[in-house]
Design a protein around this nucleic acid. Structure first.
Lengths: 224, 224
DNA sequence: GTCTATAAAGTGATAGAC
DNA sequence: GTCTATCACTTTATAGAC
């Protein structure tokens, strides 16, 4: 921690408030005036510390994306080391893929509901990879290499095409479930005691996804 | 068609352009200036014909939502009539749920890719049901009654909770797949000939969803 | 029904004092 | 590093002429 207490406190306040507001409203709808006022810092502070609004978004998204993708790769690597030469079960692979995204809530200052909304927004392809640091892009490429490889080993009857497509479907399940936990709790928990826990949601997504993956092949390209 | 050629032509031009721009950019990002300029009508025409920008969005979304939900209910009703007293197969029920959303492209002036993006945005819960006409709300409620009922009959081992949750997951699959067909074609079709057709996408989503649904129960509430 | 002109408020970004 | 003041621009919506 360099210099005075004030050095990083504004930057920190901006980051914390940004996470919450981005989760609640989405990146576009949050104005710098709204954000700085709520964070108790000056309007110009965002541009000073992050260069622009885009820079702030990239900082928030990049931190989560990096952490989650690193966690995914590490989990997969550990699982494969433990399994030796045997291919992993699909459900194990999906656990490595999903768990880190949900567990990142522990390092987040947000409530679980808000964190899930932010994570869902981060996983949405809509903003692409614009402005992401190189490390984040690398992590993304690694995930899109390692997980299809592991899945192909577990499901040799599927074409690579189908593996990628079903992984894409699985991402859709995660985004939609994370973005709408309030709907989920409304649908699944009749009363307050019935609220869906993080572990329950994870288990349900894993079962649904793993069984979806093991559906019969439907070749997308003619087998020669 | 009442009165002169000019009566509905502006309204019609606005609707067609709105569909395309909403699909490309999202509801929020499209400004009335952009829209009216591209449609070749006056800036004030949107407020005259639709009351406000919100009114225009509701008109575009409502038309698709109505058509799709009506199609879903009709397809399910037909399938049940044909099956007699036997419960439907899960894949048949999902066909009734998914097919109408993809088939609506036939009554759309958009290209398939743009139509899918618009449909994905319409299916997103983010804007809620604000401003939807009563008929649309009714259709929504009916879908959320009839489909869980049919699925429960097909999958008696699942709790109602789980049925709703897995249907929610299935919606996530559809939204994400429809919103990102370009990614899909990039992932699945190596060359231009390999591009994913509408029928292929539907078949893949059906297999993935149907097998996800038939995964083992994971009771969310303790069975008494 | 269509148009111009404009109101009223919001946006991101920045220069320059402290 | 923080602040004020402001620029340059955009947004939706509307009043009133034709």
């Amino acid at each position: 921690m360099p210099a005075t207490d004030h050095d990083a406190s504004a930057k920190h306040a901006i980051l914390e408030t940004a996470q919450r507001l981005f989760a609640e409203e989405g990146f576009e709808k949050v104005s710098l005036r709204m954000l700085t006022q709520e964070a108790g810092v000056n309007l110009a502070a965002v541009n000073y510390h992050f260069g622009s609004k885009e820079g702030l978004i990239d900082a928030v998204v990049g931190a989560y994306v990096n952490e989650v993708n690193a966690g995914r790769l590490e989990a997969l690597s550990n699982a494969e080391a433990k399994a030796g030469s045997k291919p992993l079960a699909v459900e194990t692979i999906l656990d490595c893929f999903m768990q880190p995204a949900l567990d990142a809530v522990r390092r987040s200052p947000l409530t679980e509901k808000l964190f899930f909304r932010l994570m869902g927004r981060c996983m949405n392809d809509d903003r692409g990879l614009r402005g992401m640091p190189e490390a984040a892009i690398k992590g993304f490429q690694d995930v899109l290499t390692e997980f299809p490889r592991a899945l192909q080993a577990a499901l040799p009857q599927l074409q690579r095409n189908e593996i990628l497509l079903r992984l894409h479907f699985t991402v859709g399940v995660m985004i939609h479930a994370l973005m709408n936990t309030d709907v989920l709790q409304c649908l699944t928990g009749e009363d307050d005691l019935g609220a869906l826990t993080r572990d329950q949601l994870l288990a349900q997504m894993k079962v649904y996804g793993a069984h979806g993956f093991t559906g019969p092949p439907l070749p997308l390209t003619p087998t020669p």
